[in-house]
């Protein structure tokens, strides 16, 4: 299990080293290109700022009103039987629909529990191995006018559920509380 944790600490420095060494070998202007790419990244973040404001406000209102607690209360008999963290359910469902809306809910859980809690770690891992299935499917299939998608949705949902289950198991094993 220590290997997994070592990998976590290694992967970013390693990515840096490989890319920069490879860039050197290929005679790429390292710093100039870095700056150019970083500019793009800034523009992306500034582009999503309004989205984040809109969604964090909506989630903030929803949570302050107590609506999320009511929802969690309703489904708690089911989730406790599965051993699933109750308050992660709205996030899990939203994750499959919209990446920015789920970000709002994710940050809400970080704020409430902290990113280093069981909940914080579980949702971090879960967010890393799931995808906005419904959005992606509609963009790709609509681009070629396909209406009968056959078993695509089933397959994608099973893949995502497998990832979610794996996140829960891994959080329990690696970060015993």
């Amino acid at each position: 299990m220590n290997y997994i944790m070592a990998l976590s600490n290694l992967i970013i420095p390693l990515t840096f080293a490989v890319i920069i060494l490879y860039g050197y070998a290929k005679n790429v202007d390292l710093y100039d290109n870095f700056i150019e790419g970083a500019k793009d990244g800034m523009q992306t973040v500034i582009g999503i700022l309004p989205t984040i404001v809109g969604l964090m406000v909506a989630v903030g209102i929803l949570r302050a009103s107590g609506a999320l607690d009511i929802f969690s209360g309703i489904i708690s008999p089911l989730t406790s039987r599965l051993g699933y963290p109750n308050e992660a359910v709205p996030l899990t469902l939203m994750r499959l629909v919209s990446s920015s809306a789920s970000t709002g809910l994710l940050l809400d859980l970080f704020k409430k529990y902290g990113p280093d809690s069981f909940m914080g770690r579980f949702v971090s891992i879960m967010m890393s191995c799931t995808e906005t299935v419904f959005y992606t499917m509609s963009v790709y299939f609509m681009s070629v006018k396909i209406t009968k998608t056959r078993y695509t949705l089933t397959g994608a949902l099973i893949a995502n559920v497998a990832g979610i289950a794996a996140s829960l198991v891994l959080t329990n094993i690696l970060f015993p509380s």
Binding site: M5, A6, L7, S8, I11, R121, S128, G163, L170
Partner: peptide, 19 residues
């Protein structure tokens, strides 16, 4: 912050294999 990279990678691998 980066402690979740390793487990995230494994979970991603599992979801892809399942898919």
């Amino acid at each position: 912050p980066s402690e979740i990279i390793g487990p995230g990678l494994i979970a991603t691998l599992i979801s892809t294999i399942a898919g």
